[in-house]
């Protein structure tokens, strides 16, 4: 059976890691490629790079990052942030990413999901959704609303309805990011994740709120997530990928164990 995937995300601004990441080694400062390679060697299963560059003039810097990551990191990775057209997506895929991550642009223009999935296959399209808890209404019966622009703009769109619509439009995977849980380190939004996982037939990646390995265990079992996004747990050096996987494996979760960088027959 498939292993549960541990995925991490790196925020990149104008080619440098955003400051939310604390570095253990001084020579690592600022370079997303170095950080990505470090996680790759620790046994991370997949990576996401969010380009948070403010000016669209500087987006070509991101393509250089993508290309350098692809030269050194031999696991799948996706790129998100500022992708508004099929051409934008084409550029990051040609630079070496396996998948694109679309969020606000898909809410504003749902046909983007279909266009990208027809051009590159649904496996290349990850639909990311930011979700906030609200009192249930007629428009939002689940009590979970889609928000965009980093959580600032509510869309009066039910998260469960958007998830199933996203699948129909051609998304291959969903990232479900809870704005309420994000940054709390108090655990993932189990109920939301489970509701979405039960509503769709594509993999669901839980995001927001992970603070300790127990939280990953909860969302992978009770929350029925196929994969889980971890950020600060790794970025602040509190845990390694290996330590997280060892914990999960001990609890009976199937995770991928790795051999590090050395090839087995390279010592000759």
């Amino acid at each position: 059976m498939l292993s549960k995937r541990i995925i991490s995300c790196l925020d990149v601004r104008e080619g440098k890691l955003a400051k939310s990441i604390k570095f253990l080694e001084t020579r690592d400062i600022g370079d997303p490629v170095v950080q990505a390679h470090k996680y790759y060697l620790q046994g991370l299963d997949e990576l996401v790079f969010y380009d948070i560059t403010a000016s669209s003039d500087n987006r070509s810097i991101m393509l250089n990052v993508v290309s350098r990551v692809a030269e050194q990191v031999f696991i799948p990775f996706s790129v998100g942030g500022g992708l508004r057209t099929v051409d934008d997506c084409s550029r990051v895929l040609l630079a070496g990413a396996e998948k694109v991550n679309i969020n606000s642009a898909a809410v504003k223009n749902p046909s983007l999901i279909t266009e990208v999935s027809q051009a590159f296959g649904s496996q290349a399209v990850v639909l990311s959704m930011d979700v906030r808890r609200v009192p249930p209404t007629l428009e939002i019966p689940s009590g979970y609303e889609i928000v965009i622009n980093g959580g600032r703009t509510p869309m009066e769109l039910d998260a469960i309805a958007w998830a199933t619509r996203g699948e129909e439009l051609g998304a291959g995977e969903l990232v479900v990011n809870s704005i309420d849980a994000d940054g709390t380190k108090a655990g993932y939004e189990i109920r939301l994740t489970r509701m979405i996982a039960e509503a769709v037939h594509i993999p669901v990646i839980a995001s927001g709120g992970g603070g300790k390995p127990e939280h990953l265990y909860e969302v992978l079992t009770e929350g029925r997530a196929d994969a889980v996004l971890v950020a600060s747990m790794l970025h602040y050096g509190e845990y390694t990928v290996g330590a997280i996987k060892k914990y999960l494996a001990g609890k009976g979760i199937k995770v991928r164990m790795t051999i590090g960088e050395d090839l087995r027959n390279s010592v000759e």
């Binding site: 696991i75 799948p76 051999i259 590090g260 090839l263």
Partner: peptide
């Protein structure tokens, strides 16, 4: 499977 995206194990197979 995608040996080229399967970490060190995949590289091992390509080297083989």
């Amino acid at each position: 499977f995608h040996a080229e995206k399967s970490g060190a194990i995949g590289l091992q197979l390509i080297k083989n």
